[in-house]
Design a protein around this nucleic acid. Structure first.
Length: 258
DNA sequence: TAGGCCATCTGGTCCT
DNA sequence: AGGACCAGATGGCCTA
């Protein structure tokens, strides 16, 4: 028995908000800071007004007929369903751009795993970018005082072949693993800025179908050139750069493996 | 069978 | 007033 047979054509809950350049514009309402300010209770004159208004609404609902109430409930349920569907679509979109998330032998990431991995992925990319900027400014420090994209020198070939007046390119970096910070990667990149990268790893539990670390790498790993297992068990202990939230979340997730 | 994950319903709260 | 957001409850499905 499904109660969603009524198709309510309410306004779309604008999934494109997720693509907005201004996350604060459509997101501020989602932050429950207003509730926490009063300890979850409405307070002050504003709170009294809201309470009075909501109690009026309750009276209105009591005056509604049974069928009207049911119609309203169906409408609200439908909206909520649609909202959750939009959220899931956005979550799928996030999974699509996440490493690990592809391949027939890799099970779909859970929501919490997707969010935690995405966060760590962003941290790793940010750290890598910073490191790359630092290296470039070191190498070209003389006449390229600041980092600039290769096109700034006129051609993408700049990145591959030495140009007159430019020093030869340094050896290529190994392939970066998008989630973990493989020892090989960190060893190839000097500097202390990699500690954050080193702390980015994925737990075994995020790769439920991957099997033990000694097993052949699933297809999800193949794209990273057969890099070693990124799980917590196979990595160095986390550094203090990992926020407590991520650490807690990851430890919770990795506890699944026990 | 227990536990994890998920979808759905529901009531409350807040925003426009 | 209507809609969006949120969190709690509930039940189903799946896996170890």
């Amino acid at each position: 028995m499904d109660s969603d047979s009524s198709v309510i054509s309410s306004q779309p809950s604008s999934p494109d908000l997720l693509l907005s350049d201004e996350p604060t514009s459509g997101f501020s309402g989602a932050v429950s800071s207003t509730q926490s300010e009063c300890g979850g209770e409405l307070c002050g004159e504003r709170g009294l007004q809201l309470r009075a208004r909501d109690s009026l609404r309750l009276k209105d609902k009591k005056q509604m007929s049974e069928s009207e109430l049911q119609q309203l409930r169906l409408k609200i349920n439908s909206r909520e369903r649609k909202r959750m569907h939009d959220l899931n679509i956005a979550m799928d979109g996030l999974r699509e751009v996440m490493p690990y998330a592809h391949g027939p032998s890799v099970r779909k990431l859970s929501k919490i795993a997707t969010l935690l991995l995405a966060r760590n992925y962003i941290l790793m990319l940010t750290s890598s970018l910073e490191e790359m900027k630092r290296l470039v400014s070191e190498i070209y420090g003389g006449h390229h005082s600041t980092f600039h994209p290769p096109t700034a020198c006129g051609s993408l070939a700049h990145a591959g072949a030495p140009l007159p007046g430019h020093p030869p390119p340094h050896p290529p970096h190994p392939v970066h693993h998008p989630i973990m910070a493989p020892a090989a990667t960190s060893a190839s990149l000097p500097g202390a800025g990699l500690s954050a990268v080193n702390s980015i790893r994925a737990p075994h539990s995020l790769l439920k179908s991957a099997g033990p670390a000694s097993a052949p790498l699933p297809s999800g790993f193949q794209q990273w050139g057969g890099m070693p297992c990124p799980c917590t068990m196979c990595q160095v202990p986390p550094s203090h750069h990992v926020s407590s939230m991520a650490t807690a979340g990851m430890s919770r997730l990795s506890s699944d493996t026990k």
